[in-house]
Design a protein around this nucleic acid. Sequence first.
DNA 1: ACCTGAACACCGTTCAAGT
DNA 2: ACCTGAACACCGTTCAAGT
Lengths: 251, 251
Amino acid sequence: MARKLGRPRVGEERLSRKQILVTALRLIDGEGIEAMSMRRLAAELGVDPMALYHHLPNKEAVLAGVTELVFSELRLPAQAEGPWQQQVSAFARAYRDLVLAHPNLVLHLITSMGAGSPALLAANEVLYAALASAGLPPRQIVQAADLVVDYLNGWALAAGLARSKHPDEAQGLAALLQQYPTEHYPTLSRIFSNLGEDEHPGGMEEGLVLLLAGIEAVAQDVAGSSARQQGGIANAETTAHGCGRKDGQFG
Amino acid sequence: MARKLGRPRVGEERLSRKQILVTALRLIDGEGIEAMSMRRLAAELGVDPMALYHHLPNKEAVLAGVTELVFSELRLPAQAEGPWQQQVSAFARAYRDLVLAHPNLVLHLITSMGAGSPALLAANEVLYAALASAGLPPRQIVQAADLVVDYLNGWALAAGLARSKHPDEAQGLAALLQQYPTEHYPTLSRIFSNLGEDEHPGGMEEGLVLLLAGIEAVAQDVAGSSARQQGGIANAETTAHGCGRKDGQFG
DNA sequence: ACCTGAACACCGTTCAAGT
DNA sequence: ACCTGAACACCGTTCAAGT
């Protein structure tokens, strides 16, 4: 706070990349993603806006750095402990906790799942190892991992948005439905009226269990007949659907 | 193009809400979401920027209107035709086609799935009707629908981003992996090296099939023993996992 | 009613200048 | 090297004025 101008002496630099990112994250967590402007961030640090550009090339880099910072906090489970379903569940919980700790960053978190930071590759290593221990062949491992990641991102999006918006805006389907006569959307009306008040699911586990059951069905299918040609989940479709039709519009 | 000033005569208004939204969508599809500024949009319409505010209250309303416009194009399948798995698949394909037709809008599409436009309630009506015809009780219908929607949004996000970014940026996990020695991420390296070049899944159907298998497992479970207490997917966990442990950290 | 134009309070970023 | 300050080219939006 003392010095006002000029180059600081060695050891007393006022800024660092890390410090900028930590402050940016605090700003985002506290006031939302739109509050994080370069000028506002600089003000928060008590510094000229342009000083930031000596540590990070642009705003996009700041947001990428913040996202990387958060991902580095991912508390991955120890590998290969317990049944593969529990490994996947533990992975999912770690990701969920990360998102719920920083709901205002959710859009950046989920859009960065495909990026290449080491923290992310480490996370994928854990997920793939869990699925590999289920006995799936490579192609199905990738399919199952994509399924898990896509689901987690979709769930995180919904949960993050619900947390970062004002509670009055976060209307569920049930609430929206009450603005219309019941005969307008008969199935929705029937289902939600037959649902207890506190019976709404909403958690991540419920969906994950269904999803694991689906993966397991394929795993058993593969184990039961390892000599099927070209393997693949097309077999699962036949098995699971009970009707072998492969839709022509697909793909 | 002829008149320059003042109030237009009746019947020759230069602007309409619909026209603004259509132009905004064209701009987004053609040049990306960040190209859609109020000033740019006005220029595209050959009009003063402030003219827009007589038809829409602010930029957020423009984006919401564009999103609603796109959702109104959702080509929902006819209800209750064929087995429920095909109904869900048809619903999923309709949503996928919508996203792939407007990849630059993907973030707004997936964040609006929870909003309350009539088009969206109609879509949910179809999805819930399909799941209801699977014989699931209300609570599991909601769980399964959430699962499907979350997965579709997660998939749409990944697919939309891949399409709207430059192809060189859209690196898959396999490409990123090659920057590291194989012993760094042994499972990932093993799996992707055992995967044929054109064997990468990536489509929406593969995951959906796994997911439907999981729902079906629960549906059979419910049908097979309808007298189980409080029903619910906890049963599916026991059945599917083959290990009755309910993780304490869950929830 | 509908469009205009100036103005306000913001942005991200470049560039030349300070120490 | 690191920070500053003015400047540029944008934003979204308000407000008073035109017809």
